[in-house]
């Protein structure tokens, strides 16, 4: 378990992490989510013992990262944003070196190296020079080194950044598998990634924790759903008039009309579930309801709500990519000023 208490990091005049507190429980996958400069990498570096906090404490399985640094670091396998690899070594040589550097005994080192290579799927390339590997494989080698020493906790900083879609899927699957046995903390600015992989999300914005909850709970508690999407067979005007006449319906928007089937979006005035009323109103007028579903609130909505962004991107932040609402981190120390 990790307990982060009042963690603060100041770079000169810039407050990168501002009184951050949270608790990481064992056996789950946690996501640190936030835009560029939110303080994700700084927070992870401080948990891993690579960066001294300006204030606050981090306890890793009961060991203070700064008072008992060796014991605390032994609990953690850390993959920084750029995998720390030696290009002139093969993955096998590199992992053997890492195991020895972490103080793993020689017999155990052989076993752990072999297991790490199997789990991360790099057995086939273990004798190639690291410099010749693709980014995806380099990332796998980076994850394999984090697994050595059998730490309870894995901290992976932006593990999918810079990978192609296939590699991203592979790494996500790998992290999910690792999460079955270990506590995993990943950072990302890609909402879908956190949503897909993590049980729990901690959202950081301007160095502060703005949300710390289960993903599902966060989606539900922040912005309750009031929208409904349906497709109905019948004449367009009749359907729209019937829907607007139902008490509690705030607005009705026709989205498209193809082959006599109208796709329509209905927004309700309150959280009241009007699906029964809508169904019977349509049935009474002999309009066939082909489908009807409540629109789920996404983490994206929650994120935008909490950080005050807009889907087009914050005015003071960089451009967005197709998947992420939060902009890509730029540079290798994206979280630093």
């Amino acid at each position: 378990m990790i307990e982060v208490q009042h963690l603060t990091k100041r770079y000169g005049k810039c407050l990168a992490v501002d009184d951050v507190s949270f608790r990481i429980r064992n056996g789950r996958i946690y996501g640190l989510l936030g835009p560029n400069g939110a303080g994700k990498s700084s927070t992870m570096n401080m948990i891993a013992g690579c960066l001294a906090p300006t204030g606050g404490t981090v306890l890793v399985n009961g060991y203070d990262v700064w008072e008992k640094p060796i014991e605390a670091r032994r609990q953690i396998g850390y993959l920084p944003e750029i995998p720390p690899l030696f290009p002139d070594m093969t993955p096998y040589e590199y992992l053997t070196f890492v195991a020895e550097a972490k103080g793993v005994g020689s017999e155990l080192a052989v076993r752990q190296t072999s297991e790490a290579m199997t789990v991360t799927g790099i057995v086939g390339i273990k004798d190639k020079l690291i410099r010749t590997l693709s980014k995806g494989y380099k990332q796998r080698v980076g994850i394999a080194q984090a697994l050595l020493g059998n730490p309870d906790i894995l901290i992976l900083d932006e593990p999918t950044v810079g990978l192609d879609p296939k590699q991203i899927l592979d790494i996500r699957n790998l992290i999910r598998r690792l999460g079955e046995k270990k506590t995993v903390i990943i950072s990302s600015h890609i909402l879908a990634e956190i949503q897909e992989m993590c049980d729990h999300v901690i959202i950081l914005d301007h160095g502060r924790v703005v949300a710390d909850n289960e993903i599902k709970a966060l989606e539900q508690e922040s912005t309750p759903s009031r929208a409904l999407r349906m497709s109905v067979r019948g004449d367009r005007e009749g359907i729209l008039t019937a829907l607007r006449s139902i008490p509690g319906v705030q607005s009705v928007t026709a989205e498209n009309d193809q082959g006599g089937v109208l796709a329509v979006s209905v927004v309700m005035e309150s959280e009241q579930d009007l699906r029964d009323d809508i169904f019977f109103a349509m049935a009474e007028r002999r309009y066939a309801v082909l489908s009807m579903e409540m629109q789920e609130n996404s983490l994206e909505d929650v994120f935008l709500h909490l950080t005050g962004g807009t889907p087009e991107g914050d005015s003071d932040r960089d451009s967005t990519d197709g998947e992420a609402v939060v902009p890509e981190e730029q540079g290798e120390d994206g979280d630093r000023p």
Partner: peptide, 14 residues
């Protein structure tokens, strides 16, 4: 240059 300094800092050694 290789960013392996971060790796050394994260090792459970002095």
């Amino acid at each position: 240059r290789n960013r392996t300094d971060m790796f050394y800092l994260s090792l459970p050694v002095k």
